[in-house]
Write a protein that binds this DNA or RNA. Structure first.
Lengths: 148, 148
DNA sequence: ATTTACTCTATCGACTTAATCGACTTATCA
DNA sequence: TGATAAGTCGATTAAGTCGATAGAGTAAAT
C-alpha cells in the first residue's frame, strides 16, 4: 500500500498541472479542492520543492507552480521521493540498494528471484506513467503476461 | 517493501518443502538453519497452521510438516496472509476491497488508473509463483512490456 | 507597516513491527 | 506414572512510522 502522503503528493501535482501554468496556486486552494489537511500539504509541497518538482512564490499573489512539464514527472519519481524505494526487497532497489541484513547469498536467494519480477514490473509501470498520462487517462505501458 | 515476517514465512515454507515430506521438522531446526528468531518463528508457523498451509505434531518427534504440495502454495497467498492485501490502494484489492476514505469518484480517480496496472502485475506474478518454483529457480511468468 | 502566504522545526498520539517472555498443553517413552 | 520433548498462546515490549497539528519565522507586495 502506498502512503496517504504519497497520494496527497500525486493529487497535488495533478492539481498544479491542471492549473494555469503561470498563475501560482495557493496551498489552501489545493487543500480545499483535494481535501488534504492544509498543514500536512505544506510539508509535502515543501518536499516537492526541495526536490525540484515545483517552485513557490511568497507573499501576496504567492503560491505554487509546477517547475517541470507534467509529461516529465513520473509516478515513480514522486513515490520514491515520498515513500522511499519502490522495490519489495532492499536488495532489489536500483536507487537505494542495500543487502538484506540476514542474507547469506543473493545469487542463491529463492525469494529474491520471484520478487525481482515484481520489482521490474512496478518499476516499469511507475517510471513510465507521468502526471500528464494520469490526467489524460492514457496508459503509457501495456503489459502482457506469458506462461513460462 | 515486504515485511521481515513475510520473508521469514516464505523461507520457512521453502525449508519445509525441502525437508523429508513425512518427517516433521523442528521449529528450532528451521530457526537455526534460516537464522530466524525462534519465538518469532513460532508465531509465524502458527499462523500458517491456522490457515491450513502446514500442520504440526506435538511432543517428542514432533515438529512441522507441509500440508499441501509446494506446487500449490503461492507467494501471493503467503504474502496476503502475513502482510495483508497486495494492492497498492485499498480500492484496488480483489481480496480486501474497500473505498479510499477521501475518494470522491473511483471512476474519475487519476491515480487509481495508474496503480491498477501495478496491481495487476504484482498480482499476476505473485499468484503464479509457487514455493516449488522458488526452489527450482523456474519462473512461472514472463512479462512483456509494450509502449502504448 | 501591514497583510498575505510560504518556511521550517518540533511535537503528538495512534498504530505497527519485530521480537521476547512465560505459563500451558500434548505426546512420547522409560 | 512421571520425566521430558515439543508445540500453543496470550501478553508485553521497545522502537519506529504515519498522519496530522502547532507555532514561530521569513519574504514579498501594497
Amino acid at each position: 500500500m502506498i502512503s496517504q502522503k504519497a497520494k496527497y503528493a500525486l493529487r497535488a501535482l495533478i492539481a498544479l498541472a491542471q492549473a494555469a501554468p503561470e498563475e501560482p496556486t495557493l496551498i489552501s486552494d489545493i487543500a480545499d479542492q483535494q481535501d488534504i489537511p492544509r498543514k500536512f500539504l505544506e510539508q509535502i509541497l515543501l518536499d516537492l520543492k526541495h526536490r525540484g518538482l515545483v517552485m513557490s512564490r511568497r507573499g501576496k499573489a504567492g503560491g505554487y507552480l509546477l517547475l517541470r512539464p507534467p509529461e516529465e514527472i513520473t509516478f515513480g519519481e514522486v513515490l520514491r521521493l515520498i515513500d522511499g524505494p519502490l522495490a519489495p526487497l532492499p536488495c532489489l532497489s536500483k536507487t537505494a540498494y542495500h543487502r538484506c541484513a540476514d542474507c547469506k547469498s543473493e545469487k542463491d536467494c529463492h525469494i529474491r528471484r520471484v520478487f525481482a519480477d515484481v520489482a521490474d514490473a512496478t518499476r516499469t509501470v511507475l517510471d513510465r506513467a507521468t502526471i500528464a498520462d494520469a490526467i489524460s487517462g492514457h496508459s503509457a505501458t501495456r503489459i502482457v503476461f506469458e506462461l513460462n
